[in-house]
Amino acid sequence: MNNTILEIDNVQKSFGGLKALHDLNLKIEEGKVHAIIGPNGAGKSTMLNVCIGQLAPDSGTVTFNGENMIGKAPHEINQAGISRVFQTPEIFPDLSLLQNVMITAFATREGAFKMNLFRSLSNETEIEDEACQILTEIGLMGKQHSHAGSLSRGDKRRLELAMCLVQHPKLLLLDEPTAGMARHDTNKTIDLLMKIKEGGMTKIIIEHDMHVVFSVADHISVLAQGTIIASGTPDEIKGSPKVQEAYLGGAHL
């Protein structure tokens, strides 16, 4: 029996009259890749927003590593060990790729605030090496000194993934990490995700691309209309008539 690293308990969230999350319960096991699938507007991103402190739920709790996350500031939640790749890439467009990755690495090493006014960034070779290594793995090395803002959408997404990976989070939240990528890049991203899977990092991955979902997930939950309607291993989900009906519409998997 594995440990539960994240537990979402009875979370409700409404926007006006719209119930975006409704009696949401979910347990994520440590070290597993947990995929969340569901139709557009099901509440997948909203669920992640609640987990990282971007949104306060109307009620319910989110427990990470035995600690309640509700009411904590976003930076405290990140420092606790949760990093997120957003659905629309959130990077630092005015900095170089290398600086983007180095900045995130500093956050993990130095904490939420550190006044190192007089060190030179160019002397931070240890962090720079680590950043370069990750950029190499993700295939962005060579562009490390260009503006992150000049990247294509797919490359921005990969950069954001690199920024999260360099933090070695306990829990990595991926909101459609391959959307907008060419097939070739999608495959590379899958390879990378498989590789870090062996590292034991827990991941929640939201994905519409079933090819990606079934290649990486240990466990799949189906979210529809703000609540989990089915949960199980990939095989169980494939075989579930309820899922076929609610989400996949009988499509072949």
């Binding site: 500031a73 976003p74 930076h75 990093s83 630092f92 600086q99 956050a107 960034l121």
Partner: peptide
């Protein structure tokens, strides 16, 4: 040219990202 200054520029560039990256801005 310090990490501190680069973090300040990162705040200018995308403060939201800074917060979700673990910084108290």
């Amino acid at each position: 040219h310090s990490p501190f200054g680069t973090k300040l520029r990162a705040i200018k560039s995308n403060q939201t990202r800074m917060k979700y990256t673990g910084y108290n801005t």
